[in-house]
Design a protein around this nucleic acid. Structure first.
Ligand SMILES: NC(=O)c1ccc[n+]([C@@H]2O[C@H](COP(=O)([O-])OP(=O)(O)OC[C@H]3O[C@@H](n4cnc5c(N)ncnc54)[C@H](O)[C@@H]3O)[C@@H](O)[C@H]2O)c1
Ligand SMILES: NC(=O)c1ccc[n+]([C@@H]2O[C@H](COP(=O)([O-])OP(=O)(O)OC[C@H]3O[C@@H](n4cnc5c(N)ncnc54)[C@H](O)[C@@H]3O)[C@@H](O)[C@H]2O)c1
Lengths: 218, 218
DNA sequence: GTAACGCTGTTAGTATTTTCACGAAGACCA
DNA sequence: TGGTCTTCGTGAAAATACTAACAGCGTTAC
C-alpha cells in the first residue's frame, strides 16, 4: 500500500525511463532519475523499494527491467479501459492527447448530452449520448471515469458512472462528488493550481518545487 | 509562509464561499466548509489562522468578510496578468475557461509558433507569435506564465518567459524545467493524475480522498 | 588476488502536515 | 442574570513524508 505520492512518482519515473530508453541508454542511476524528476536520490531508491525489482550497485537500474517492474506494479497485467464524460474544450483536449497512445490506459468511449457532439468520432473516440453510459461501460469493461462537465452536472454524471460500476474517477469539475466508499475519486482543479502559482510567484519564499543541478531530459 | 497545500485549500475555500454567497447565506461554519472541501473541520480552522480574520463562536465565519480576507491574502491588492504559451488543444481549453472571468487572475496574452494560429483572437484572447513574448510581457506587466507546448519545446519557452521577467510558471508539459532560483514552477501532469486514479481504482486501499457526510455544494 | 570505489537497500532520524482536545466566548432561553 | 449549548482558536500529539547515513556488494584497477 504505497502512498498517493509514491504512485505519482512511479508514474513519472516510468515516463522518464521511456525517454532514456529512446536515447539508447541501458542503465540509469538513482541520482540521474532523481534529477529528471526533481526529487532526491534517496527518494528514488525508497520508491523503488515497493517494486520487487532491485538495481545493482555500481550499475544502477536496468532501464527495461525497471519499466517492466513499474508497469507490473501500476497496471498489474491488463490495461484499464476508461470513459470520458463531457466532450467540451477540456474533454476534447484530453481525448486528443490520449488518441495516438497504445498504452495500458485507454479512453475507449466518450459521452455528452449535446446532440451536436454526440454520435460521431472525436479525436478517434466514439462519442455516445449520456444515457448509453451504463450499458457501454458494462459492454466495454470500463472501470475508470473522467469527468469534464460543468460543476452543476458533475454529481449527476458521477452517479451514472457509479451505476455503471466505476471504480475510480478523475474529476476536473470544481465540485466534491459524493460516491460510494469503494469508488476512488481524485479532484484536479486547474484554477486552484493557477492561483497557487500566482501566489508563490509573488510571495516567493525560498523555492519549493525545484529542478536541480542534473540535466533534465525529455 | 503558508504551505503549498494551505494555499491550495484557501483558493478552494474562496471558490466554495462564492457559491455560498450566491445562495444568500451570510454565515458559514468550519464543519460546513470542511464538508464541501472534503477536509476536516480542524483543518479549516487551522488554515484560517494564517488569515488575519477570525470567526465568532456559535456564528461561524461571515462569508463576505472571509472571502475578502482570503482575497487580500492570496492576491494582495492587485490582480496578476498571465500569459499562456502553446495554443493547442489544452491551451484553447484553458483560454476558454478563463475567457469570461473578470477575476484578479487574467490571461491577457497567448503565444504560439504556428502561423495558422497566430495573429488572431482565440476565445477572447489575442494570440501573438512567440518572438513577441518578451516585449508583450513587459508592456502588459505579465508575471505568470502557463506552458501548454509539447515537452520538447518546454525549456525553450521557459527560457523566453524568464527572459521576459516571469515570476511563476504553471507547466503542463511532462518536462522538468530549469529556471533561475527566483522563478516558482509548478508542474501539472494530467497523465500522471490519470494513472494514479487507475492504480487506486484497482488497488483500492480504504479510501483516500473522500467527500464526507456534509452536503456538497456548488 | 585484493584493495578501493561507487551505488544500492534499508533503517533510523528529522521535518512537515494533519488531527485531537480543550479553554474561552458569543448566543439563546428561561 | 445565570446556565447551557455551540463553535472558534490554539498548542500539543499523532501521522505522514522526506532525508541522511551507513552497511553490503559488485566492479574495476592494479
Ligand atoms: N478548461 C479549463 O481550463 C478548465 C479549468 C478549470 C476547470 N475546468 C472544469 O472542467 C470542466 C469542463 O470544462 P470545459 O472547459 O471543457 O467546459 P465546456 O463547457 O467546454 O464543456 C462541457 C461539456 O460538458 C457537456 N455536458 C454538460 N452537461 C452534461 C451532462 N449532464 N452530461 C454529459 N455532458 C454534459 C457539455 O455538452 C459540454 O460539451 C468544467 O467543470 C470546468 O469548470 C476547466
Ligand atoms: N491535452 C491533454 O490532455 C494533455 C495531457 C497531458 C499532458 N499534456 C501536455 O500538455 C501540452 C500541450 O498539450 P496539447 O494537447 O495542447 O498539445 P497540442 O499539440 O494540441 O498543442 C501544442 C501547441 O504548442 C504549439 N507550439 C509548439 N512548439 C511551440 C513553441 N516552441 N512555442 C510556442 N508554441 C509552440 C503548437 O503550435 C501547438 O499549438 C503537451 O506538453 C502535452 O504533453 C496534455
Amino acid at each position: 500500500m504505497p502512498s498517493e505520492k509514491t504512485v505519482e512518482r512511479l508514474s513519472l519515473y516510468r515516463y522518464l525511463l521511456y525517454g532514456i530508453l529512446a536515447d539508447g541508454e541501458r542503465n540509469v542511476f538513482s541520482h540521474e532519475l532523481a534529477g529528471m524528476a526533481a526529487v532526491s536520490p534517496a527518494q528514488v531508491r525508497q520508491d523503488m523499494m515497493v517494486l520487487g525489482y532491485s538495481g545493482s550497485p555500481n550499475q544502477g537500474y536496468e532501464v527495461g527491467k525497471l519499466i517492466a517492474s513499474i508497469t507490473e506494479f501500476l497496471d498489474d497485467a491488463h490495461g484499464r479501459n476508461m470513459a470520458l464524460v463531457g466532450v467540451g474544450n477540456l474533454g476534447r483536449a484530453i481525448l486528443s492527447n490520449f488518441a495516438g497512445q497504445r498504452s495500458r490506459l485507454q479512453i475507449v468511449a466518450a459521452f455528452d448530452v449535446d446532440w451536436q457532439i454526440v454520435n460521431r468520432m472525436v479525436h478517434g473516440c466514439w462519442c455516445y449520448p449520456l444515457d448509453k453510459l451504463s450499458g457501454v461501460m458494462r459492454d466495454q469493461d470500463i472501470t475508470v471515469g473522467i469527468i469534464c462537465v460543468p460543476p452543476a452536472a458533475a454529481q449527476e454524471v458521477a452517479d451514472a458512472l457509479c451505476e455503471g460500476g466505476v471504480r475510480g474517477i478523475l474529476n476536473f469539475a470544481p465540485y466534491r462528488l459524493q460516491v460510494p466508499d469503494h469508488v476512488y475519486v481524485s479532484n484536479l482543479n486547474i484554477t486552484v493550481a493557477l492561483e497557487k502559482v500566482a501566489y508563490f510567484a509573488h510571495h516567493s519564499p525560498v523555492r519549493l518545487e525545484t529542478p536541480s543541478r542534473e540535466e533534465a531530459k525529455v
